[in-house]
Amino acid sequence: MPQQHSATYSSKATQTCLVVEDNLFDQERIKRIMDKSFQGVFVAIVSTIEQARLHMARYQTSMILLDNNLPDGTGANFAIELAKVPEFAEIPIIMVSDWPSPFMFDKAESAGVIHVVNKSDFGARYIHAALNHKPSKRLLN
């Protein structure tokens, strides 16, 4: 079952950040960054791609922080899957991975992922970029 964490709410409309990450340490690190830096952003944390699909079928999602190595597939392939669905194609995605590879970068770029970041370099500036991202057409062939 997905964990639901909420950041401090402000008077602005609430946005939802879906974190797809199976490592508990990384989940908590991302949650701390969100709680410290963002008001009005609700954080939902799931551990698998299937849980992410279920969340997205039920709830509005404003942005996605996506690990690449997940128990039921790769984040890069999931990003491509989302890019093919019109209702999800414009959601900004940031891939946060331990070992970003050139192959993953290529897939992420074709899916319209706005950033691919090593977990050790991840910080609030990437979330700001996602929250302020203006959708553009994906490059899928």
Score class of each variant (00 low, 15 high):
A76G: 14
D98M: 13
Q60V: 11
P86F: 11
N77F: 09
E87G: 10
L82C: 09
N68W: 02
F78D: 07
A57K: 12
G75M: 08
V96L: 13
R58T: 10
E90I: 09
A83R: 03
W99N: 15
A89F: 08
D72Y: 08
P100C: 13
A52T: 01
H55Q: 11
A89L: 10
W99D: 14
P71W: 09
I94E: 01
N69K: 10
A83V: 09
R53K: 15
M63I: 01
S97N: 11
N77V: 07
L66M: 04
G75C: 08
L66A: 06
M56F: 10
E90Y: 12
P71R: 04
A79N: 02
I93Y: 01
A79K: 01
L65E: 00
L66C: 10
D72F: 06
V85Q: 15
M56H: 06
S97E: 09
H55I: 06
T61Q: 01
N77T: 12
E81D: 15
I93N: 00
D98F: 06
R58I: 13
P92A: 09
F78P: 01
W99Q: 11
V96H: 05
G75D: 05
A52Q: 02
V85N: 11
M56C: 09
T61M: 04
A89W: 07
D67K: 02
M63T: 03
I64P: 05
F78G: 05
S62H: 05
I80W: 06
L70I: 05
L70Y: 03
K84H: 15
G75H: 02
L66H: 06
I64C: 01
H55K: 06
F88Y: 15
R53G: 08
P92F: 03
M56P: 07
W99C: 13
T61A: 07
F78K: 08
G73C: 11
M56S: 12
V85T: 15
T61N: 00
V96C: 10
A83F: 05
E90C: 12
Y59W: 13
N68H: 12
K84V: 09
L82D: 00
I94L: 04
M95D: 03
W99G: 09
L70V: 08
W99A: 13
A79V: 00
P100K: 08
I64L: 05
P92L: 13
D67M: 07
L54M: 12
S62C: 11
L65H: 02
V96T: 07
A57S: 11
